[in-house]
Design a binder for these strands. Structure first.
Lengths: 185, 185
DNA sequence: AAATTATGTCAGCCATATTGACATATTTTT
DNA sequence: AAAAATATGTCAATATGGCTGACATAATTT
């Protein structure tokens, strides 16, 4: 593990030293592999989602808008109910941000051709542009992080992330994520 | 990529079909590798953090408490300033949850032995127990997700996550995450 | 005709984040 | 010793994005 990155001495170990200086209680058992990944996931996600925040602020939007815009852009024709299932929020919560995105011309609704109760969601040209702008720094970050890895390793990384999803939804998620890559029957 | 998981037909492709039935505009370009990972990260993290929520609710705590408790437990003797830097929130935001954790006996403060302005943070026995309880489902999820992978692949997964962290902080994060694993000089 | 479904909306509540201003104790600098 | 800087805490106001509950409308299914 130590070869992943160098561990310079410095403030990095300051907390340990302070704790030791304090009363010499032993520092707790070292992190297991899973414990390390708990923290890595926190830090990775923290920085991953920080990228788009500055852009969003220019439009008066927040992360909730980003999530909606992203999924509508990538999966056009999605129903409101699909979005609720994906985001795992209530329709009241979604309603507010969706309304703002529609009113400001980033998302539009069309009644379903088959079932006219449905409001199918699409991004407008403007919405597609913003979605792409928000995606760009995240894609760059991911590509940089994958840079040294073989195709096999990349698959393992993606497989790990997919395996982190609740088993009951894993196939749905895989279907959604990879839907555009699957050859149509 | 298609071999990672089977892609059953069904509602998974429903959005595409609805969009197609709608007006036959072509479905947008397929997701690049990075685009897939953007979504996988969202779903993985969504479920990863959902585990502890039920437990926290029993104590009247939220995710903010979880984050504080986790870092204080894993890095005892941490200063308030360290926590602010890690969580990237303001001291006012931290103040509230920290006060609640202290008042309810999960975290305690000790003035620093070297610099008595500092309030070094430690979990109490009760706090350590709760931190462990919260960690358990997350560790299990991670171990399950790593299950099929070689040691090499596991390193690559951890390396990927670390590489997702802002370059400017990557060494600090690595130091923090792996601090207990590094042999002391 | 009745029941169900998909969606929207009003109203209020809560958790967690923000900015800005100011207070206290302690350490460091001059 | 006095002044400046640092670590922390706190008051007050505000914003975002969740939540529950209740109710309404349109369209589809039974």
């Amino acid at each position: 593990m130590a070869d992943i990155i160098s561990h310079p001495r410095g403030r990095v170990t300051a907390a340990r030293e302070r704790a030791q200086a304090q009363d010499a209680e032993p520092v707790p058992a070292s992190g297991s592999e899973a414990d390390d990944i708990i923290e890595l996931l926190f830090f990775a996600y923290r920085d991953f989602i920080s990228d788009p925040d500055a852009i969003l602020a220019d439009f008066g939007f927040g992360r909730a808008h980003h999530r909606v815009l992203h999924f509508v852009d990538r999966h056009p024709g999605m129903r409101v109910a699909d979005l609720l299932e994906i985001l795992k929020i209530t329709k009241q919560s979604l309603g507010r941000v969706l309304k703002q995105l529609i009113d400001s011309g980033f998302v539009e609704q069309q009644p379903g051709a088959l079932d006219r109760r449905e409001r199918l969601l699409f991004t407008t040209a403007q919405g597609g542009e913003l979605a792409a702008r928000l995606r760009e720094p995240q894609s760059r970050r991911i590509n940089d992080a994958l840079a040294g890895l073989s195709l096999e390793a990349r698959r393992q990384v993606a497989g790990f992330l997919l395996a982190m999803v609740n088993e009951t939804e894993r196939e749905d998620v895989a279907g959604r994520v990879y839907e555009n890559e699957r050859p149509r029957p």
